[in-house]
Design a protein around this nucleic acid. Structure first.
Length: 182
DNA sequence: AACGAAGTCAACCGCTAATTT
DNA sequence: GAAATTAGCGGTTGACTTCGT
């Protein structure tokens, strides 16, 4: 079983096979394409490098900003973040985060924690309940009351990554969020 | 020029979830 | 419903490149 970097010949074999037969059952793909690779490796190669419309490198300022915002909201959910950036893969975003952005963030945080005041909302928030398929009916006529301080960190200035954007984001895509896997 | 440190990124690994048998 | 197989995810590794001395 081959491991390590893919050769141009392997790439060609994989691309040609998938073009004809489609990208499913990766074990079969690996075998029938004549690749001495495991299915997992073929899948990864296809998804991250060979499939059409993949963007490589040169992450723009706008994309970087979006990654920062999404990470603030979602944490290390790389595939979800990648899903919001057309042509980008979870692996690329994860690498970009680990090599560029995490350092940038920790630098900024060090600066900010020494200068920012703690913001404390006066009243607890009341969020209208949302019906989720499967859960519907289990919580009758209820509203969810919670203390914002318990959920969000107000010790730093949210700035451009603030809640206004988050609300818009959720409004736009509420349905897909509720059905999102994991 | 040489060498070690730090950075980058493609690929692998282990695990869980989803699907098929 | 259980077991086996497949798909997908995030963390980690290691080869390669770039940088600093």
């Amino acid at each position: 079983m081959n491991k390590g970097a893919w050769t141009a010949e392997e790439d060609q074999k994989l691309s040609q096979y998938i073009e004809i037969h489609g990208a499913k059952r990766w074990k079969t793909v690996a075998f029938k394409a004549g690749l001495n690779r495991c299915g997992k490796s073929c899948r990864l190669r296809w998804l991250n490098y060979l499939r059409p419309n993949i963007k490589r490198g040169n992450i723009s300022d706008a994309e970087e900003d979006l990654i920062l915002r999404l990470h603030k909201l979602l944490g290390n959910r790389w595939s979800l973040i990648a899903g919001r950036l057309p042509g980008r893969t979870d692996n690329e975003i994860k690498n970009y985060w680990n090599s560029h952005l995490s350092k940038k963030i920790s630098k900024e945080n060090k600066l900010e924690t020494s200068t920012k005041q703690k913001i404390v909302p006066k009243e607890p928030c009341v969020i209208p309940r949302v019906d989720v398929e499967g859960v519907k009916g289990s919580i009758e006529n209820s509203e969810v009351n919670f203390d914002v301080n318990g959920l969000f960190d107000f010790t730093t200035d949210l700035g451009s990554y603030g809640l206004e954007w988050m609300n818009k984001f959720l409004e736009l895509d509420e349905d897909s969020w509720l059905t999102e896997k994991r």
